[in-house]
Simulated assay, not measured.
Amino acid sequence: MSQARPAPILPPFTEATARAKVQAAEDAWNTRDPERVALAYSEDSVWRNRDRFLTGRAEIRDFLREKWNRELDYRLRKELWSYTGNRISVRFEYEWHDTAGQWYRSHGNEQWEFARDGLMSRREASINDVPIEESERRLRQL
């Protein structure tokens, strides 16, 4: 028996639906499953992630696969910053370590734009990484 998928969260957003969209994104990204996460983006979605520019769900999926092969034990928290119409702004932080065992806390802001079907058509992300000691971690388990 297959589980029914929840109804998509569609724009225009209210505070409640914007918060639900942010939580759904946090939950999906914390799976570290590129296939699942990529389904939230339109086939022609446009991204800027740091200094990388991506177009399309396939590029996004490949990027996420690379990201989680490099950023190990990734844990993320997102927070709604603002919303209007079909746009949401989010602040976030995540923690991860590299293959040498160095831990980082990455801080950033995202601006999201959604199509009528609720899929993200544009994502702009600015991110800064701060080296931390493992003992400084705040996001051990979500």
Rank of each mutant, 00 (worst) to 15 (best):
G85Q: 08
Q111N: 12
T14E: 04
D44Q: 12
V46L: 06
P12R: 04
S45R: 04
A24P: 03
G85R: 10
Y83V: 06
F13M: 05
A25D: 09
R77V: 15
A38G: 07
S45F: 11
T99D: 08
Y41G: 08
A18E: 01
E35M: 00
A20E: 06
D33T: 02
F114A: 01
E95F: 14
R75D: 09
A58Q: 14
D73P: 03
S121M: 10
T31S: 02
D62Y: 10
A16Y: 03
R32N: 11
R75Y: 08
A7D: 05
D27Q: 05
L54N: 03
D44S: 09
P34F: 12
V90W: 06
D117N: 13
S42K: 00
H107G: 06
R61C: 09
F63R: 03
L54A: 07
D44T: 12
R50S: 13
E15S: 04
I88Y: 09
Y41K: 02
Q102Y: 06
R5L: 06
A28F: 04
G85N: 09
S106W: 05
R91Y: 14
I60Q: 08
Y104A: 10
Y41A: 14
A16Q: 14
H97A: 12
P12N: 03
L39G: 02
P34V: 11
E35K: 08
R50G: 15
R116F: 00
W29M: 13
G118V: 01
F63K: 05
W47E: 06
D33W: 03
W103C: 03
D27G: 04
P34T: 08
T31I: 03
R57E: 03
P12T: 02
Y94W: 11
N30R: 03
F63Q: 07
F63H: 14
D44H: 11
S45P: 01
F114S: 00
P11R: 04
N30G: 06
R91G: 14
I9R: 02
D51N: 14
G85W: 03
F92K: 10
L10T: 00
A24V: 01
R77L: 15
L72R: 15
A58I: 08
R36T: 05
D44V: 07
F53L: 14
D62C: 10
A125E: 15
N86D: 12
